[in-house]
């Protein structure tokens, strides 16, 4: 696996208020390399989250053990940061403010929290922003290589309908992105030409689009519908882009089921993800439970963070429920990867 290095100083720091920027820029390259999150909360200590888990308070002299020595984020810092991430144009990001996040060049995301303004019972916009969370987008190329062999039906030259299940921050999106890239590239990995992949990226997380342009490597034959609701996006893809594989994340709405049924009946392979830890847990969820009962998914992949994000726990054959791979048995299952 290759972790694609990014420069926080060049890609994230220009969007931080000067005082916070100065604190982050003082961090050593080793610390910057393992930074996953930078959290700014009004009147509270500046916190940095690490890629391998855990977090530290940040003071003017670097990470501190207690909140006492940490830098307290001022409202001025939040205001300036908000101006910088929106390019002084909050009005141009209404849709993003409604969704609660903005994407920066490089695919990094800034999550927002504040006061929600409602219109007809739905969030119209977020105001009085009190928290900002910079989440560093790190692409791990090769994250999907270990599972790809289990997802490919060589006899029919197609990809199995696959559901990736994991708790939050356990590597679902990283795996989805890499699978899209590997399937799209094809040669050398699948032993044949790549396939046309369509990503419906409702939350701009898979491809990390900035102004519609993917910032992360998602493969040569991949098209992205950015910030598009899943059901609508899948139908759009079907009508206009003739994908062979559709990749999307976090299924959950009733209308998603119908769109998926359309895609599956059109012979398109589907790779998607869901929050959860066990099969029983996702079977109880209304939309996912329905899809699982219909035996739509031919492969289920379970991930965890036990040995760091992206730990492969189990791969299960959907219809029969047979484990194809299990970390509990030292990586073996009933049968090995083809």
């Amino acid at each position: 696996m290759v972790k694609v290095n990014i420069s926080i100083k060049e890609q994230i720091c220009p969007f931080l208020a000067p005082r916070i920027r100065a604190i982050i820029e003082k961090l050593s390259p080793e610390l910057l390399n393992k930074t996953e999150e930078i959290r700014l909360r009004h009147s509270r200590p500046l916190i940095i989250g690490w890629a391998e888990g855990g977090e530290s308070f940040l003071g003017e002299r670097g990470p501190t053990l207690t909140a006492k020595g940490a830098y307290r984020v001022l409202s001025e810092d939040l205001e300036k940061t908000l101006e910088l991430i929106s390019n002084y144009s909050l009005y141009a990001f209404e849709e993003e403010l409604k969704q609660g996040f903005l994407t920066l060049p490089g695919g990094h995301r800034v999550g927002l929290a504040g006061r929600a303004v409602l219109e007809k019972g739905r969030v119209k916009v977020l105001r009085d922003i009190s928290s900002l969370n910079f989440r560093v987008a790190r692409q791990i190329k090769g994250a999907g290589e270990k599972v790809l062999g289990f997802l490919f039906d060589r006899d029919n030259s197609r990809v199995y309908h696959t559901l990736i299940v994991s708790p939050p921050q356990a590597g679902k999106t990283t795996l989805l992105r890499d699978l899209a890239r590997l399937i799209s590239e094809g040669d050398g990995i699948l032993g044949q030409a790549g396939k046309k992949v369509g990503i419906v990226d409702e939350r701009s997380e898979i491809a990390g689009c900035f102004r519609g342009i993917p910032q992360l490597d998602i493969g040569t034959r991949t098209d992205v519908l950015d910030a598009c609701p899943k059901a609508e996006g899948i139908m759009l893809m079907l009508r206009s882009l003739s994908p062979q594989v559709i990749v999307t994340d976090e299924l959950g709405r009733v209308e998603d089921v119908q769109a998926i049924a359309e895609a599956v009946s059109a012979g398109i392979s589907l790779i998607t993800s869901a929050h959860g830890s066990t099969l029983e847990e996702i079977l109880r969820r209304p939309v996912l439970g329905e899809l699982l009962e219909k035996n739509i998914f031919e492969r289920l992949i379970f991930l965890s963070s036990k040995r760091g994000p992206g730990t492969l726990e189990m791969i299960v054959e959907g219809e029969k429920g047979l484990p194809l791979y299990s970390a509990r048995y030292g990586g073996g299952g009933q049968k090995d990867a083809p």
């Binding site: 002084y88 909050l90 009005y91 209404e94 916009v125």
Partner: peptide
């Protein structure tokens, strides 16, 4: 006034 709030606010 520049760059503050949503379109209507601005």
């Amino acid at each position: 006034a520049w760059g503050k709030g949503d379109k209507n606010d601005q």
